Measured scan of single mutants.
Amino acid sequence: NSLAEAKVLANRELDKYGVSDYYKNLINNAKTVEGVKALIDEILA
């Protein structure tokens, strides 16, 4: 998966839960796919 794909999928996942734009910005600023995954795990914990 590319970083861009990971960000799109992460933001879709956040949308399902009604997560605020603050967290979407964190996702969009992530530098690695692993970073995106770690943020998602933390946000949805």
Rank of each mutant, 00 (worst) to 15 (best):
N1Q: 14
N1P: 13
N1S: 11
S2W: 09
L3I: 04
A4W: 10
A4M: 09
E5K: 10
E5I: 11
A6L: 14
A6T: 08
A6F: 07
A6Y: 09
A6D: 03
K7I: 11
K7M: 05
V8Y: 11
L9H: 14
L9N: 15
L9E: 15
A10R: 00
A10M: 02
N11P: 02
N11Y: 13
R12M: 15
R12W: 13
E13G: 02
E13M: 15
E13I: 15
L14C: 07
D15L: 07
D15S: 09
K16T: 06
K16F: 09
K16H: 07
Y17K: 07
Y17C: 04
Y17M: 14
G18Q: 06
G18D: 08
G18E: 08
V19G: 11
V19C: 13
V19P: 07
V19A: 10
S20F: 05
D21A: 09
D21E: 12
D21P: 08
D21G: 07
Y22D: 07
Y22P: 03
Y22E: 10
Y23E: 04
Y23M: 08
K24Y: 12
K24D: 02
K24H: 09
N25E: 15
N25K: 11
L26A: 07
L26Q: 06
L26I: 07
I27T: 01
N28R: 06
N28C: 06
N28L: 11
N28V: 06
N29Y: 04
N29F: 06
N29H: 09
A30K: 03
A30M: 11
K31P: 07
K31S: 14
T32A: 02
T32M: 02
V33I: 15
V33H: 05
V33N: 03
V33W: 04
V33F: 04
E34R: 07
E34D: 11
E34H: 09
G35D: 15
G35F: 11
G35P: 00
G35M: 14
V36K: 00
V36S: 00
V36E: 00
V36P: 00
K37L: 13
K37T: 09
A38S: 10
A38D: 08
A38N: 06
A38G: 06
L39C: 03
L39Q: 02
L39D: 00
L39S: 01
I40M: 15
I40Y: 13
I40K: 10
I40N: 01
D41V: 14
D41M: 14
D41F: 10
D41K: 14
D41N: 13
E42N: 09
E42T: 08
I43K: 01
I43N: 00
I43C: 04
I43M: 05
A45Y: 10
A45R: 15
A45V: 08
